[in-house]
Each structure stands twice: as C-alpha cells, then as structure tokens.
C-alpha cells in the first residue's frame, strides 16, 4: 500500500458517499445517470467476486463490501425509491455499445483465460467507460448540479491517483499490470474535459454549464 493508492481509494469512497448522500438528502436523482450507476454496480460485482475466494486484508474486504453495498443502494434509490425524479429522457446513452465491445475485448485480451480473470478484466475495461452515460447526460442537459461535479471530480481523481500508484509500484516493487494501466489511462483521459471545466468554473464558484 502507498499514499497514492490510499488517497485514491479514499477519493473513490468519497465520490460514492457524496453521490449516495446527495440522492438520499435531496430525495432526488435529477441529473444523475442511472445507467452509469448500473455499470458501476456491474464493475464492482464482477471485480469483487474474489471476496468469496480470497482474503487479502480487513481493509481490502471491508472496502469491497462498502463499494458493492453503496453502489447497489444508489441504483435502488434511482430506480425504485426516487424513481419519480429519475430523468430518463436525458439518460439515453446506449450502454449496449459499451457492454458488448468490453465483453468481447475481455475474452480477447486478458492475463488468463479463467472465469474469475475474465470477469476481472471485464470489470477493468467496463470501469474505464462506465462514466460515459453520465458525461453524455450532462452534455444533453447542458448543466450539472455543483454537488454532482464534486462527485465526478473525486471519481476521476481516484483513477488518476491510481496511475501514480502504478508508477510507484513499478519503480519500487517491479509490479505492473498493463491491462489495468491502459484502461486507467483511458478512464482518466475521459475526465480531462470535465476536469478543465471543474477547475475553471466550479472552483471559481460558477455553475458548470455547457457549452463551456
């Protein structure tokens, strides 16, 4: 464990909690893409099946359980409890255009052709593009609530910190996972446009609205 990975995990946890609290307290999921949240629930489910087979540490196990629990709770709030506030007309990204290619790629490019490894690979590739429906929805509505931009900032920051963690681990441990690194670079690049708007607008107290 290093400071970059720990900060990354805490940033990820902060993002998940911010979103859950935003929906719960405002009793509304306006502006939130339910499709992205379903994709994140799929990411955690397919990646953390090793909860049943391997024990790494209390930290590892508890964070995985928290991530899975919060992501399913968020999906439940969006599609069940606060369904009336779900903005389905703007959450129209065709997720099958993400899941099918990612599913195919995870069979073609992986470290080991075993079920657990292919599901892990699928979750890595899926996580790289899971935010697209949310970014697409913001481009369609033309704006985002400030709390939603903070959620996106911490979510994007977490994988950027993981990139530094992988540099650190390569340098100090000789460890690297090319699949995770390439997917992590793609994932972080997808946030660049948002990061620019977040820094130039939200951090200056303005509302995030598109076109910039």
């Amino acid at each position: 464990m290093n400071i970059f990975r720990l900060t990354g995990d805490l940033s990820h946890l902060a993002a998940i909690i911010i979103l859950l609290l935003k929906i719960w307290k405002s009793r509304s999921c306006a502006g939130i893409s339910g499709k992205s949240q379903i994709l994140f629930a799929m990411v955690f489910t397919t990646r953390y099946l090793d909860l049943l087979t391997a024990y790494i540490s209390l930290y590892n196990t508890s964070m995985k359980i928290i991530y899975i629990g919060c992501s399913y709770a968020t999906v439940y709030l969006i599609y069940a409890k606060f369904k009336a506030t779900y903005d389905g007309n703007h959450d129209t990204f065709r997720v099958e255009f993400l899941v099918v290619p990612v599913g195919g790629l995870s069979f073609l490019v992986n470290h080991d052709f075993s079920p657990l490894e292919i599901l892990w690979t699928f979750s890595i590739y899926l996580e790289a593009v899971a935010i697209l429906p949310q970014l697409f929805m913001i481009s369609k509505t033309g704006e985002a609530e400030t709390i939603t931009t903070h959620y996106l900032f911490f979510l994007g920051l977490y994988r950027a910190l993981y990139l530094i963690n992988w540099v650190w681990r390569f340098y100090f441990e000789g460890f690297f996972d090319m699949i995770a690194i390439v997917a992590g670079v793609v994932q972080t690049i997808l946030y660049c446009d948002f990061f620019y708007l977040y820094v130039t607008k939200v951090l200056k107290g303005k509302k995030l609205s598109l076109p910039a």
């Binding site: 990975r5 995990d9 990820h12 790494i56 540490s57 995985k64 470290h111 460890f175 690297f176």
Partner: peptide, 10 residues
C-alpha cells in the same frame, strides 16, 4: 506474468 501477483488492489 507479474501482473498475476495477487490482486491486492481495489
């Protein structure tokens, strides 16, 4: 390959 190192990351 060394990426098979136990998956200890979240």
């Amino acid at each position: 390959s060394d990426s098979q190192k136990k998956k200890d990351e979240l």
